[in-house]
């Protein structure tokens, strides 16, 4: 190779490197300082002891992990899983037929229906939860309506049912969208073929539509489960602090008890559960 040919190539490579440097450095530097370092701190604080007035004393301990295994905390973890799972199942039961119908609508109405589903999601989260307080409260509207029928009053607010209602309400659009995407791209000829071969509508759904939309089901379920599991605002506003979820514990450890190391351990447990679920989802999606 002659030097005359290698030089432009080298110059090009240098310029490429420079381009990569100029474009990537600012954003990545920002993410290193304000994302990776903070996460590394959460990870490392787990091994230290709590300071007397918050903060941390840099003495190694595994106590924060052993405390996680306390039945008290395991029960909270279990209850969080249960609430998030129930939320996901209800969102799926409501979201699947909804997405199925939207996918069958004429093109013009599809967009309208999708915007209608997503619109509440873009409104203030706290206000939406406030709306449920008004509806479910003792003197609230649902009880007033029931009273005129001679029923109630019922304790609708500040229990697990209220939490699940709030969670389903908040994250239902995240279930409908991936389901819609999965159902929409199904070839209608597949269902026609199934019907022509004599399968009933339900059999076609069970044997053709449902198996082919499993990836959408998995994605939607993950999208609903993840924010439900780590939530602390909804259990606090609608659960009245009676049902405690992992998120509430973390919030208390950080802002009230000021036990940062144990709070970090709880956060780590939360992330661990979510990572396991993500891996399971990826595995299931590949098999589907």
């Amino acid at each position: 190779m002659s030097p005359a040919r290698t030089r432009p190539a080298t110059a090009l490579r240098v310029r490429r490197r420079l381009g990569a440097f100029v474009f990537l450095t600012p954003g990545l530097a920002y993410l290193v300082v304000l994302l990776l370092v903070p996460l590394a701190l959460v990870l490392s604080y787990v091994f230290f002891q709590r300071g007397r007035f918050g903060g941390v004393v840099y003495e190694y301990t595994t106590e924060n992990f052993s405390r996680l295994l306390d039945p008290l905390y395991l029960r909270v973890l279990g209850e969080s899983l249960q609430i998030a799972a129930l939320t996901t199942v209800i969102a799926l039961a409501l979201g699947y037929p909804t997405a199925y119908l939207i996918a069958r609508l004429p093109r013009k109405w599809k967009t309208v229906a999708l915007v209608a589903i997503v619109l509440p999601f873009w409104t203030n989260f706290i206000i939406r939860m406030y709306a449920w307080i008004i509806l479910l409260n003792g003197p609230g509207l649902i009880n007033s309506a029931l009273k005129s029928l001679g029923l109630g009053p019922f304790e609708l607010l500040y229990n697990q049912g209220a939490i699940v209602t709030g969670l389903v309400y908040s994250y239902l659009p995240l279930m409908v969208l991936p389901l819609y995407a999965a159902i929409e791209k199904l070839d209608p000829q597949l269902r026609e073929a199934s019907a022509n071969l004599g399968a009933s509508g339900f059999t076609t759904f069970r044997k053709v539509t449902l198996p082919l939309t499993v990836p959408g089901v998995l994605t939607g379920s993950l999208f609903v489960f993840v924010p439900s599991f780590g939530n602390f605002v909804i259990p606090e506003m609608l659960g009245g602090g009676k049902s405690v979820m992992v998120g509430n514990l973390i919030r208390t450890e950080f802002l009230k008890a000021r036990d940062w190391p144990f709070g970090s351990a709880l956060a780590l447990a939360l992330v661990a559960v979510l990572v396991v679920l993500l891996l399971a989802q990826a595995w299931a999606a590949r098999r589907a």
Binding site: P38, F254, L270
Partner: peptide
């Protein structure tokens, strides 16, 4: 994709 709560406490620790 990270739960907002985890990012929040990480940043709280960092700012501290």
């Amino acid at each position: 994709v990270l739960p907002d709560l985890v990012l929040a406490i990480g940043l709280l620790l960092f700012y501290g």
